[in-house]
């Protein structure tokens, strides 16, 4: 008989490798698929978004300069640590999404496998997407993919873990850093993921996770002068999506529009290529 009183967890934000509460001091109740109370999550604010963007920018220099081999190993390490917490993730996904045992397990396994898939791309996408160009003159010319910079992302609202992983992995594998707003109603798998990220050799600031209401937080990220791109995948409200796109135009951000793909399907390179810039370098060839 188990009469031990469980130790419950305080769910916090993940910014710059640390776990702060929202600077606003606010929380909101999170319930499972059957509306049973699960926890209070931090209700991220404008200033939390600002802090997260700052942390992401601080993390960008080191992460974008890391070797592709290193970035691949770090993502693979995240998968390793997730695998160790597989049961917890299954329980979290089950509670969040109301899926059965088998389906939850499939979602978690696919999430881990997806990270492994993207980890393997770290040292290959530049070979696939970069090239030398046969210009008509005595110049060596090559084009290489480079990370766009700091990316803000609105994670899918339904697919709380697989959707989240499928959004952030292609962003960070190429050297971008990300501020992601987790599923509002299903934030707990994302928060568990932050605990994995914190212990998986991921440098601080590479992934920053906010919980709360995208309608409150995202406009500040969309208009932010030090955010280079925004992924609206998880925005379900069309008016909000349009508003964010308008805000983003002010600094010519790359905007990935809302989408609801089948997350279980193997992705193509579309997400990865969206958050890179092609840099073309010319040099004369002479003796």
């Amino acid at each position: 008989m188990n009469d031990r009183v469980a130790v419950r967890k305080t769910y916090k934000l993940f910014i710059g490798g640390a776990f702060p509460r929202s600077e606003s001091g606010r929380t909101y109740g999170v319930h499972d698929a059957k509306e049973k109370f699960l926890a209070n999550a931090a209700k991220g604010s404008r200033k939390d978004a600002r802090d997260a963007a700052l942390a992401a920018r601080a993390g960008f220099a080191g992460w974008s300069a890391a070797t592709a081999y290193n970035r691949g190993q770090v993502l693979y390490r995240v998968a390793e640590v997730m695998e160790g917490r597989r049961e917890q993730f299954i329980a979290d996904v089950q509670a969040a999404e109301g899926l059965g045992d088998k389906k939850s397990a499939r979602v978690v396994d696919t999430s881990i496998d997806r990270l492994v898939w993207y980890a393997g791309w770290a040292d290959k996408y530049a070979q696939v997407l970069g090239n030398t160009n046969p210009v008509a003159g005595p110049y060596f010319n090559f084009a290489i993919p480079e990370p766009t910079g700091v990316v803000a992302a609105i994670a899918p609202q339904d697919s709380s873990l697989l959707g989240l992983v499928s959004v952030i992995a292609p962003i960070v594998v190429t050297g971008n850093t990300v501020v992601v707003v987790a599923s509002t109603r299903r934030p707990i798998p994302a928060i568990t993921l932050t605990e994995v990220l914190a212990t998986a050799d991921l440098p601080p600031g590479v992934v920053n996770v906010l919980t709360g209401d995208p309608a409150e937080i995202a406009p500040w990220l969309a208009s932010h002068g030090d955010v280079n791109a925004i992924d609206l995948t998880g925005v379900t409200n069309q008016d909000l999506a349009k508003q964010l796109e308008i805000e983003a135009a002010g600094t010519v951000k790359r905007v990935r529009r809302p989408a609801q793909p089948n997350w279980l399907a193997t992705p193509d390179l579309g997400r990865l290529t969206f958050f890179i810039e092609t840099k073309t370098v010319w040099h004369p060839i002479g003796a």
Partner: peptide
């Protein structure tokens, strides 16, 4: 110590 000459540029 003289500046180099870039062949392509000068051509």
């Amino acid at each position: 110590g003289l500046p180099g000459v870039d062949e392509v540029g000068i051509k």
